[in-house]
Design a protein around this nucleic acid. Structure first.
Lengths: 136, 136
DNA sequence: TTTAATTCCGACTAAAAGAGTAGGAATTAA
DNA sequence: TTAATTCCTACTCTTTTAGTCGGAATTAAA
């Protein structure tokens, strides 16, 4: 599975965006200071968030980002997926015609890991960006 | 969180041990062949499993391993924990006196990641080694 | 029209973790 | 005595993570 700082930062930044919404867009500089994440790193992350249609940008002075949709409609899975590309624990060879571990059959744990994936994904599917502010 | 090949291999090996139980102990060579995991790697893994009292060893020729407890009493969390040392997704600074990201407060996602940890751990707590054979 | 603030973009790098190898010592059944 | 086996430590190669860096493009405001 991939659940790294980058994924966490993305969630933090999106939550920041949601809870500090104001009239115009919010600049990464602001978020960088509030969340203590390097600006350059945030830029990388927001590029992906933007490509995944989670935020809209305006360039130039006073530019920045806003959420593309209401926070109630953004699932955490969307965010994680956007920056980490996959939420999968399954390390079995996926694309090989053969089964796991290059044997002809699925390994004993194959279904188990599948279930775990569903379990974790389910968690991130359930929680919306909006819910985050309530957790604190 | 750490959910790596090593953890998966450990579960596979333990399941192998459970389902191929016979009169005497089972050697790592056997498991290595059946599960297609390198012998040297298995040795590393079983060292930890043994230290965590999940298996018993007998040395010398015809030696090998047996489960220390019935498969119905071994939780997957025990196995994962034994080889991966921790099941934690939380990347926030843990031991620092300060909060996450060196700020004085917990980060927005702190509780969220805590919940996720519990969610995943709950999954591994529920499943027993014995249950694995039924999944296939 | 200039300047400063900002997003955009690709390339680069250092550190850590993952995945496994290698070599040999100790033990024990046959 | 020998072969099979666990035990143990150290090493190495590769991939991933977690950023940094430099500069181009854009735009509001002075």
């Amino acid at each position: 599975m991939k659940l790294t700082n980058k994924g966490r930062y993305a969630v933090m930044a999106m939550a920041d965006l949601a809870s500090n919404a104001k009239d115009g867009p919010i600049s990464l500089t602001e978020i960088s200071i509030r969340q203590n994440i390097s600006l350059a790193y945030l830029e990388q992350i927001f590029l992906k968030l933007k490509n995944n249609k989670l935020v809209k940008s305006s360039r130039g002075a006073n530019g920045g980002y806003v959420l593309e949709k209401p926070a109630s409609e953004i699932k955490l899975s969307n965010i994680i997926f956007a920056v980490d590309e996959e939420v999968k624990t399954l390390n079995c060879k996926k694309n090989s015609k053969k089964g796991c571990n290059n044997k002809t059959t699925k390994c004993i744990t194959h279904n188990l890991w599948d279930q775990l994936d569903q379990h974790i994904n389910g968690f991130f599917e359930k929680v919306k960006l909006q819910d985050l502010t309530k957790l604190n």
